[in-house]
Structure formats: structure tokens, C-alpha cells
Simulated assay, not measured.
Amino acid sequence: MVFDNGTWWLVVLLLGFATGALIYLLKRSLFGRVDKLDESVKRLDESTVKKEPYEKEKDKLQRGIERIERDYTPRSVHDKSYDELKSDIKTIMQTYLTKDDFIREFSKMDRKIDNRLGNLQSLLGGEGVAEDEFLDSVNFLASEGYIHLRLISTREPALLADHEYTELEAKLTSRGKRLLKGGIEDNMIEV
């Protein structure tokens, strides 16, 4: 069999197509596997962790769990503490004054104190004590620290020498209370 030039071109062309197809199939199957392996490696990288960061995170979480276990209050202890606090609150509510009660009692006491100076003068006046003697006595009690004088209108401290006694009110100090109860003695005062 004799092949002419046209036949050789056809044979070379067919061999080229066959070689190209073979290379294409080889490339497709071989590089397809490489691509699949590459994807598998990427998935493994994304879904796994290296040992060192894993151990650090594990230790951190373990310390957190230990802290929770150490600080955790069991339900029975919590309930007991809650009941004790509830009982304490109930006791406080029963034994202590409310704000309104305090204000009411304080107002009563304040009105009584406001009227003491006037009542004292009228009481002493009924026993024949002159106004100047009364004022000297009040001035002495204030200067010795047995009473504090203040203006009725502003509640600011005041001196008897600077104001009319009718503008003033007197408050018994703790020293004055001790004197009245006999805790201290003053030979200038008769109790």
C-alpha cells in the first residue's frame, strides 16, 4: 500500500486528534482528582484546628468551667439565702418606721420644741420670774452649750443678743439632756 501526500496529512491529522483527545482525557481525569484533593484539603483546613490553639482554647474553657463550679451557688443554698433575706425584710418592715411615720413624728417633735421657749417664759412668768431674768437664764444656757438657739423662720443658728426672743426657738443639746437626767452637775443650775 502506497500512501500519497494527502493520505499522510490525513494520518498525521488523525494522530494529532487522537493524541489531543488522549491528553485531554488524561488531563481531565488526573487534574480532576487533583482538584478534588485540593477541595478536600481546603475543607479539612476549614473544619479542623491545629493542636496548639485547640489546647489553649481547651485550657481556657476548662478554667472557665472550674470557675463556674467554684462560684456556683446550688439551688438549695440560693433558696435558703432568699428565704433569710425575705424574713429580714419582713422583720425590718414590722420594726422600723416608714418615711411617712418618721416625718409625722418628727413634725410633732419639732412643733413641741418650737413652743418650748414660749412655754418656758410663760411658766417662769407665772412663778414671778421677770423677763430680764428669763432672758439672762436663756442666754446662760445657750452660752454653756445646754441649748442651741435658732430663728423660727429660717432654722438658722442665732444669738439672743441679735434677735427678739419671740423670733427664736431653743433645742436641748445632748449636754443639756445629761444635765436634766443628772449625768452632769452644774452648781449654777438648779434641776
Rank of each mutant, 00 (worst) to 15 (best):
E46P: 00
R150F: 08
Y165G: 00
I152C: 03
P157G: 11
G176D: 01
M188G: 03
S87A: 15
K27C: 14
Y96R: 11
N119E: 09
F102D: 02
V191H: 04
D79A: 15
I113K: 04
S29V: 06
L151V: 09
A21V: 14
S47V: 14
L26M: 03
D83H: 11
K42Y: 08
N119Y: 11
L117V: 05
E55M: 12
H163R: 12
D4Y: 04
D35F: 15
L26I: 12
L159Q: 12
N119V: 00
N187Y: 06
T154Y: 11
V2N: 12
D186T: 15
N115T: 13
K50L: 14
P74S: 09
L10P: 01
T7I: 11
I68P: 04
K51T: 08
E127M: 08
M109E: 05
Y24G: 13
E46C: 02
E185H: 11
K90A: 13
L120W: 03
T73S: 03
S29P: 00
D186I: 02
T98G: 13
R67T: 07
A18M: 07
S174E: 14
L30A: 13
A18F: 15
S29I: 03
G128E: 03
L149Y: 00
G32F: 03
F140Q: 06
A170C: 08
L30K: 07
Y96K: 14
R175D: 02
Y72P: 01
R155H: 09
E133M: 07
M109L: 12
K27Q: 05
K108I: 02
L180V: 11
L179S: 02
Y54N: 11
K51N: 09
G183C: 02
R175Q: 03
M109D: 07
L97I: 00
G125W: 06
L180F: 10
R104Y: 13
N187I: 07
V34L: 15
H78C: 07
Y96F: 08
V138D: 01
R116P: 01
G20L: 15
D35E: 15
T7E: 14
L151W: 02
E185I: 13
G32C: 09
E105W: 04
D100W: 10
I113D: 05
G128R: 05
Q94Y: 10
E131Y: 09
